[in-house]
């Protein structure tokens, strides 16, 4: 049975300027209105509206049977969502913070990822696991991590990351419609950023979910980023312009499957590439990008692919996170090194 089409505007008929958090909220709302089988479940998502208020008001409007304040157990949230999906529901699970997905890791890699294969395709697992990720919020341990590579590494899972309010609004609806399980990463530090408010037109036609996008064109080098790092890359591109460097920026949007067409095209043009990501670099999305680009664009490359990542250490205490996180200077330094190669 085909998933219902994204329903046309009901709650957000007019073009509105929204924060990413509010855009996600309206996207969830639209998905719930479109399909009565969509459930929202997680810790504190009901009455409180989630610790980030992304599900604010949903329980009030859709009821406790559609917005579930679950027991405090991530394995339970994911595992029960699998069962609900088998029964025909479309659960949208909220993991409160990136570092708390791990009690649910077993269910994700063993059941969520494999059930479709194990049943010769008879059983679909159309669930979404929303994970606020990344740092920059001055939090204590386990609240600022970037665990996306674990999931991109796992066959059977789709993994996406939004970087702006417009994508957030559409991508969450598309992920919910997807018949495969989708890990949905949200850059928490920008949830409520007024500076990143964007106009959202519910009547617009969104880009496909599993597509990368060139968000700034340039000729000197290619910056590839996703989630919170897109803003860092864009800021770096703006700064580089003053130095006469024209940087192309690609927002990956989808981490698994990777949509590398735009990346290859860009690198064939610029000959240089720098990956920007908050996750540690070892065996990361950046590693995969470097491998694929050197394979496909070998003769176009003027320099090796460079990676500006978090370091290969546990996420540090808040006072050190500015040094852990890729910033404009580190990105520009990598661009310089690439150019000097």
């Amino acid at each position: 049975m085909a998933a219902p089409a994204i329903n046309k505007p009901q709650t957000a008929p007019a073009v509105q300027s929204l924060t990413m958090g509010k855009a996600l909220n309206l996207g969830l709302r639209a998905a719930m209105e479109a399909d009565p089988k969509v459930l929202v479940m997680g810790e504190d998502v009901g009455k409180l509206g989630g610790v980030f208020r992304i599900t604010d008001g949903l329980q009030k409007d859709f009821g406790e049977h559609r917005v579930l304040d679950t027991p405090l157990a991530e394995s339970g949230i994911i595992g029960a969502a699998v069962g609900l999906a088998v029964r025909g529901f479309r659960p949208v699970c909220e993991i409160q913070f990136d570092g708390f997905v791990f009690p649910g890791f077993d269910q994700i890699v063993s059941q969520v990822a494999k059930l479709h294969t194990r049943t010769q395709g008879r059983v679909k697992v159309p669930m979404v696991i929303r994970i606020p990720f990344g740092g920059g919020i001055g939090a204590v341990e386990h609240h600022s991590e970037s665990p996306e590579s674990y999931f991109a590494h796992t066959a059977g899972l789709k993994v996406v990351a939004c970087s702006n309010a417009v994508d957030a609004y559409w991508m969450i609806q598309q992920a919910i419609r997807c018949d495969d399980p989708v890990l949905f990463f949200e850059p928490k530090r920008y949830y409520h950023s007024a500076a990143m408010k964007a106009e959202i037109d519910p009547a617009a036609t969104p880009d496909p979910l599993f597509a990368s996008r060139v968000v700034r064109t340039g000729t000197t080098a290619t910056l590839v980023a996703y989630g919170p790092s897109v803003k860092v890359a864009m800021d770096a591109a703006t700064a580089a312009e003053e130095d006469g460097h024209s940087l192309e920026v690609i927002d990956l949007r989808t981490l698994s499957p990777l949509d590398l067409g735009p990346v290859f095209e860009s690198v064939r043009k610029t000959g240089r590439m720098v990956v920007v990501s908050e996750s540690p670099s070892e065996s990361s999305i950046g590693s995969e990008l470097a491998a694929r680009v050197q394979q496909e664009c070998f003769y176009s490359l003027e320099a090796p692919v460079l990676r500006v990542h978090g370091f290969d250490v546990p996420y540090p205490p808040a006072k050190l996170e500015e040094h852990f996180l890729p910033d404009l200077d580190r990105v520009l330094d990598a661009v310089d090194r690439s150019l000097a190669w």
Binding site: L72, V140, E141, H142, P317, K319, E321
Partner: peptide
């Protein structure tokens, strides 16, 4: 230090026989 963001707790957990705080429930 934990809450100021300078460290993850500095007491000697072996000497005090008081393990580090654990946040993952």
């Amino acid at each position: 230090g934990i809450f100021r963001g300078t460290d993850n707790g500095t007491w000697d957990s072996v000497a005090h026989r008081f393990h580090p705080y654990t946040i993952v429930i």
